[in-house]
């Protein structure tokens, strides 16, 4: 069933459709939030808040196959709000425990990714994340980031250029 059909059913009060929609997008939203906050716990909180906000404002959503963009916009705003809050770091080193399912290769990939992402601007990083991480179209990325499609395209293109250079320098 398409996202918009599920949303229509939810608007009519169908709880099963609500559950299906949450299960469909819980993991992608969590993954997106995890890239924006250091703590796994916080990412889970933000994911939950994203869905709560979605359900509270679902009556304002006007279809036209833009559900993903709508959902990621909520998540993005929450992540931005979170990044603005004053942080209190605990005295103990609260390293995030690695998940059991996370293999060596995954850790290596993450380190490599961190190195490639370092020279990128925040917008470029966000655009790459939405494009390759969440598989959004450029139109959807533009909607989430509040820019036009050409800007979104050029952000991704420039980011790829910088990352390619970074990779070659390392070699």
């Amino acid at each position: 069933m398409q996202d918009d059909d599920l949303v229509e059913q939810i608007k009519c009060g169908n709880e099963k459709a609500a559950e299906e929609l949450i299960r469909r997008y819980y993991l992608p939203v969590l993954r997106y939030c995890k890239r924006h906050c250091p703590s796994r716990e916080k990412a889970e909180d933000l994911t939950q808040e994203t869905f709560l906000k979605l359900f509270q404002n679902l009556h304002t959503y006007r279809g036209k196959k833009k559900f993903q963009a709508y959902l990621y916009t909520i998540a993005r705003h929450l992540c931005i709000d979170e990044s603005r809050k004053v942080r209190f770091y605990p005295l103990e080193n609260e390293e995030e425990p690695q998940c059991e399912c996370q293999g060596i290769r995954q850790i290596e990939d993450n380190m490599e990714l961190g190195r490639l992402f370092r020279p990128l601007t925040w917008e470029q990083r966000e655009a790459v994340l939405l494009r390759y991480g969440e598989q959004l179209t450029f139109r959807e990325i533009a909607e989430v980031m509040g820019c036009n499609m050409r800007t979104a395209q050029s952000r991704v293109r420039n980011a790829l250029k910088i990352m390619r250079k970074e990779w070659e320098n390392e070699r």
């Binding site: 709880e15 609500a18 949450i22 969590l30 889970e44 996370q102 995954q106 994340l129 991480g133």
Partner: peptide, 22 residues
């Protein structure tokens, strides 16, 4: 590959989210 690495979902948090949304 690296950006789409599956994050581990805590089933209890997922259920909690579903319950709160409903």
């Amino acid at each position: 590959r690296s950006l789409r690495q599956e994050a581990c979902v805590d089933p209890s948090r997922l259920e909690e989210t579903v319950w709160r949304c409903i």
